[in-house]
Nucleic acid binder design. Structure first.
Lengths: 196, 196
DNA sequence: ACCTAAGCGGAACCCGACTCACCTTATGGA
DNA sequence: TCCATAAGGTGAGTCGGGTTCCGCTTAGGT
């Protein structure tokens, strides 16, 4: 066992408070809230924040890990309920929807997808894996071209999430459709999907 | 005329030296060179740097404006020598090639394309216009689907430029092809291009 | 040659992430 | 119940950047 003693109660409480405070700050627009501010909102000092998270970025990453995990849980359900290509399309749109929950969320997703930042390695791998699952199903069914992997697709989606100009959701949906069509173009059976 | 007197000779020289030093730093990998370092390389003090550029970011933007301008000059030539869809494809690949000249260039292009940073507004507009030109030609020829504009496409390309893991150029080329196919899918005359 | 405004230098400043030496307290065993 | 002790908390201080400011320098016109 790595931890003979579990985390002390106050420590766990503070850690939770920090995550809550950070989430509140990030999701309500203030994506670059200062560590002092986050700590203050959580009712602790900065030292405590740094006891629980190595860097500010690590805190950010942890906040969004849950959101990402939720997103990444979707593929099995989608594949159970839809044809592979439709499942893929829906997942892409789900991604857009997620980046709509707040400026902070969008920027975090962009960092996860469009940068090489080591802090987001876990999240990136998780999302790439989720996409791989969808892509593999599509390829197997002959409705998605081969040679596309999750990591690559993730990159292509990165730019979408940082968008927040007026009407961005339409733009995002449009890009998503382009990518979707691009992946199907030339597949063994590239008819337009019609379920769902 | 906005400036009755032209810029003083030493000032112009220093401005040029700063741009040269910054370009050298950025293109040779050190994309986040410190202002002190850039000023030192240019043989001036930081105060001088700030006389010529409002912020560090403004200097970065100016350095890459020329690269971007070069890129944006390409569409007319491409359209003169190739079918509209092939011209588009080549331009996209040209973009990838440009982001390959250095880590700094790639990151700058990513900032231009994937963020809303006001500093890059000019560059962004210029590139969107260049893409619009290509897209319009493609739509007119019935080889590119309607409803895609330069700004949107720019977004979709953003993530490509930040990539620098081993083998990224293959990934980038692949994404580019996906987008290209996605844009043609469903166009009036969507046969695969064969010129060039 | 001299005047003067444009230009320059660089120490000082600000601001934000991060550290560390010391204090507080939860917790489990006597 | 109470103590010992290590886990946890604190926040002033450090550090590393970008940015500012004001006195000095100098180009360039008369």
């Amino acid at each position: 066992m790595p931890s003979p003693r579990p985390m002390r109660a106050d420590a766990r409480r503070n850690r939770e408070a920090l995550l809550t405070a950070a989430r509140a700050a990030f999701l309500t627009g203030d994506a670059d809230a200062h560590v002092e501010e986050i700590a203050r909102r959580a009712g602790v000092a900065v030292g405590t924040l740094y006891r629980h998270f190595d860097t500010r970025e690590a805190l950010v990453a942890e906040v969004y890990r849950q959101e990402v995990a939720e997103l990444c849980a979707a593929p099995p359900d989608l594949l159970a309920q839809h044809a592979p290509d439709e499942a893929l399309r829906r997942f892409l749109l789900l991604l857009v929807a997620h980046s709509a929950v707040g400026k902070g969320m969008g920027e975090a997703l962009e960092s996860i997808m469009a940068t090489d930042s080591a802090v987001f390695d876990d999240a990136r791998t998780e999302m790439a894996t989720a996409l791989d699952e969808l892509l593999a199903a599509g390829v197997a069914a002959g409705v998605v071209r081969e040679g596309v992997n999750g990591r690559v697709l993730l990159r292509a989606l990165g730019g979408i999430c940082g968008m927040h100009a007026k009407g961005w959701q339409d733009d995002a949906a449009r890009i998503t459709e382009i990518l979707y069509d691009g992946m199907r173009y030339g597949a063994a059976n590239s008819a337009r999907a019609s379920d769902g």
